[in-house]
């Protein structure tokens, strides 16, 4: 009985000591995943996810506090990449397939400049008392301008399909 207890205790102690050594030797510094994730984020700090900026969102995503689908500007593609990175599966059907971009209805715009002050990417051009316009290529679709517009004249619309952007649809199920 005594031998048994002794032997097991001894084994436990030795193994514990060895593992302790190993843990020291193989010590890994802070989780590098947060940095990788914030690299992937749009970096526009638009705040639509509910966090102050992309860095905070990345931390929350890494710790699993928030969904990978939280970023509207990143859209489906970002969600997919993040899910791959974190090794989780997501339901892509939940995300709107087409990103929406800001469009200013020029007949209602009063040129108040509020929208271009909030735009994180300087995608809105115009001057005081002049009609503003969105440079489509620079818009992330964050919607900050829509919230800021006092005239309610900004609509979030999908990019119109033209010959250049058209691509083949999926074949009808075979």
């Amino acid at each position: 009985m005594i031998t048994a207890i002794f032997v097991l205790t001894l084994m436990g102690l030795i193994l514990g000591y060895l593992l302790g050594l190993a843990a020291k030797y193989f010590h890994v510094e802070a989780d590098p995943i947060i940095e990788e994730i914030s690299e992937l984020m749009p970096g526009t700090h638009c705040g639509q996810c509910g966090f102050a900026g992309c860095g905070q969102a990345a931390e929350a995503i890494a710790s699993g506090e928030t969904e990978v689908t939280c970023c509207p500007p990143g859209g489906k593609q970002l969600a997919e990449t993040l899910a791959d990175k974190l090794g989780i599966t997501i339901n892509l059907d939940d995300i709107a397939n087409e990103p929406l971009y800001a469009n200013i209805n020029s007949s209602e715009c009063t040129g108040c400049t509020r929208c271009y002050k909030v735009c994180p990417t300087d995608a809105i051009v115009g001057a005081n008392k002049q009609i503003h316009a969105v440079i489509n290529a620079a818009c992330t679709g964050c919607g900050a301008c829509k919230t800021a517009c006092p005239e309610n004249c900004i609509d979030m619309l999908p990019e119109p399909i033209v010959l250049e952007t058209w691509h083949w649809p999926k074949p009808i199920a075979a």
Binding site: L8, M11, A23, F26
Partner: peptide, 27 residues
């Protein structure tokens, strides 16, 4: 003469080896 401790001690060993593998892989 402690054969009756076989299962117990094997589990101990295995747990340690697995823990070691995990540390190694994480690194």
């Amino acid at each position: 003469g402690l054969e009756f401790l076989r299962t117990l001690s094997f589990i101990l060993i295995i747990a340690a080896v697995v823990q070691f593998t995990e540390l190694y892989l994480q690194k």
